[in-house]
Write a protein that binds this DNA or RNA. Structure first.
Ligand code: SF4
Length: 222
RNA sequence: GGCGGC
DNA sequence: GCCGCCAACATA
């Protein structure tokens, strides 16, 4: 038996399955900052974006819908992408013509007016990035040295890197990702393993845990 | 990125 | 070259 991601929702309709909308704010993404608690696939896209000031279509979809589910409003998303692309070779007038419509569309403000939500892990894992693309799941796509380096970079303790890489090598990507979650968050000790199914849920739950920790710390030290 | 229109 | 429209999810 493996603990599922929603194991905490023991109550009647505590309802975490359709993970609550996150509360990520535009200000947390300033200056190319990568907010703590993001899964490796999204950290990777954030880094590539801040590095090259651009992402191909697949990357924009994967990261854009993720940020939306993390809580960015449409205005915040437009601001974020416009500013980031503007640091590269896409001036704001070209951005408005070439990229803004698609963002409004995912927020249900154009065409059929239907909102989209974050890709699930299955879809991301089953997508293979081509040359110059950085979407997809790092636990599947990265070479072993690169995965090790990336895990260290997001704060996984040295002793935890090997077991995670091992899970990834056995093609247990979502388990590897769950183990990374456990290695970088104060999870319930009763959880022996975690299968990550959705990146936004990963992030929103990481923030919940950090918030809980911050408030309990304040209670102890008033 | 795909489809479509001029 | 200009432009519009689309995709996701879980759930019964
Ligand atoms: S398992 Fe899911 S969340 Fe974790 S890196 Fe892969 S796709 Fe992203």
């Amino acid at each position: 038996i493996q603990n599922h991601f929603y194991a905490i929702a023991a109550e009647g309709h505590a309802k975490t399955s359709t993970f609550a909308r996150g509360d990520l704010k535009r200000a947390e993404l300033h200056a190319g900052d990568v907010p703590a608690g993001m899964p490796l696939c999204m950290v990777n896209l954030m880094n590539k974006l801040k590095d090259s000031h651009h992402l191909k279509h697949g990357g924009r979809m994967q990261l854009g819908l993720f940020l939306k589910s993390c809580g960015l409003t449409m205005e915040e998303s437009l601001s974020f992408w416009r500013d980031e692309f503007q640091k590269g070779s896409v001036a704001s007038d070209r951005f408005d013509k070439q990229y803004a419509y698609s963002i409004r569309h995912t927020y249900g403000k154009e065409g059929r007016r239907k909102e989209l939500s974050c890709y699930g892990c299955m879809k991301i894992i089953n997508t293979t990035p081509g040359p110059g693309e950085h979407h997809g799941c790092p636990y599947k796509e990265f070479s072993e040295p690169r995965l090790k380096q990336s895990l260290s970079a997001i704060g996984v303790p040295a002793a935890e890197v090997a077991p995670i890489v091992s899970l990834a090598k056995e093609n247990h990507y979502q388990l590897a990702c769950g183990r990374t979650f456990m290695a970088t968050n104060r999870t319930d000790p009763s959880e022996s393993s975690i299968v990550v199914t959705n990146p936004a849920e990963y992030f929103n739950r990481a923030r919940m845990l950090r918030r809980e920790e911050a408030t309990t710390a304040m209670d102890v030290d008033p």
